[in-house]
C-alpha cells in the first residue's frame, strides 16, 4: 500500500531521517515507537507530503507521489490524518467539520455528506453534538471528531500522529477505543504513539525508530519481548 525508499529529511544541517526504507501492506497496522526526536512524526508526515523528503521516494498504491507534476491533493484524499493537537476547525460546527471536505471536493452531495456525518458521529458517540462548535467539546471528543472528519473522505490509509499525547489521562481510553474499532474494520494504519500497551495490542508490526533510522522492526511480540537492538532494550526499560 505504501512503500518508502531511501527517505532522508534535513532541516537545515539537522538530519532527521537518514535513508529510511520500509513498506506497509494493505490492512496492516504499523506502530512507530521510539524516543522523542527520533524522527517518527517526521517520517509519518512524509507519507502524505506534509513534510517533503529531502531525498528518496514514496510509492502509494504503486504510484510515486514524490515525482514531479503529481497532484498530491488527489492522493491526500485517500490518506486520512489525525494530529496530536486535533486541529478541528473552530469556525465550523461538529457536523460541518466532517462534511466540509467531501462536499467541497465534490466527493459527496450535501445530503450524502450529512447522512455520512451523522452515521460517523453515531459510531463515536457524538451524534448529539452535531450542531455545536468544537469549543464546547472535551479533548477526547475533539480527537474523536478529528478521526471521523478524516474517515468521511473514505480514506484507504489512516495516519495517526501521537493521537493521545495531548489528552488528559482519563480521555486516552475513549480515543484508543475508536482507533481499535477502526482496526477491526480492516483499515490500513500507521500510528506514532507513546502508548506501548496499545501499540503491542493493536499492531501487526512495530517500527522502533532511533536517530533518524528504523533501528528495529518486527511483530509486537518480537519487539517488546525479545528485542535485539541495545537502544531498544534501553528504551523499553524506561517506558514499560
Amino acid at each position: 500500500m505504501i512503500k518508502f525508499e531511501h527517505i532522508s529529511k534535513k532541516f537545515g544541517s539537522l538530519e532527521v531521517l537518514k535513508d529510511v526504507t520500509q513498506q506497509v501492506s494493505q490492512n496492516e497496522i504499523v506502530s512507530l515507537i521510539g524516543p522523542s526526536g527520533s524522527g517518527k512524526s517526521t517520517l509519518l508526515r512524509c507519507m502524505n507530503l506534509l513534510e517533503i523528503p529531502t531525498s528518496g521516494r514514496i510509492l502509494f498504491k504503486g504510484e510515486d507521489i514524490t515525482a514531479r507534476g503529481v497532484n498530491i491533493n488527489v492522493h491526500r484524499q485517500k490518506m486520512g490524518m489525525v494530529f496530536q493537537h486535533f486541529n478541528v476547525f473552530p469556525n465550523m460546527t461538529v457536523e460541518q467539520n466532517i462534511t466540509m471536505a467531501p462536499v467541497i471536493l465534490n466527493k459527496m452531495t450535501k445530503e450524502q455528506a450529512h447522512k455520512k456525518a451523522l452515521e460517523l458521529l453515531e459510531r463515536v458517540g457524538l451524534k448529539d453534538k452535531a450542531d455545536v462548535k468544537p469549543a464546547k467539546l472535551s479533548g477526547g471528543q475533539k480527537q474523536r471528531l478529528a478521526i471521523v472528519r478524516a474517515m468521511a473522505m473514505e480514506p484507504e490509509v489512516m495516519l495517526f500522529d501521537e493521537p493521545t499525547s495531548a489528552l488528559d489521562p482519563e480521555m486516552v481510553g475513549e480515543v484508543l477505543e475508536v482507533i481499535k474499532n477502526l482496526a477491526k474494520s480492516g483499515m490500513t494504519m500507521m500510528i506514532v504513539t507513546h502508548e506501548m500497551g496499545f501499540a503491542k495490542e493493536i499492531s501487526d508490526r512495530v517500527f522502533f525508530m532511533n536517530n533518524g533510522i528504523i533501528a528495529e522492526s518486527g511483530t509486537p511480540e518480537k519487539i517488546f519481548e525479545a528485542p535485539d537492538n541495545d537502544r531498544l532494550k534501553d528504551f523499553l526499560s524506561k517506558v514499560l
Partner: peptide
C-alpha cells in the same frame, strides 16, 4: 489548521 485542511485533500 492549514495542515489539517491540506491533509484532507483541500
Amino acid at each position: 489548521q492549514t495542515e489539517a485542511a491540506r491533509s484532507l485533500g483541500l
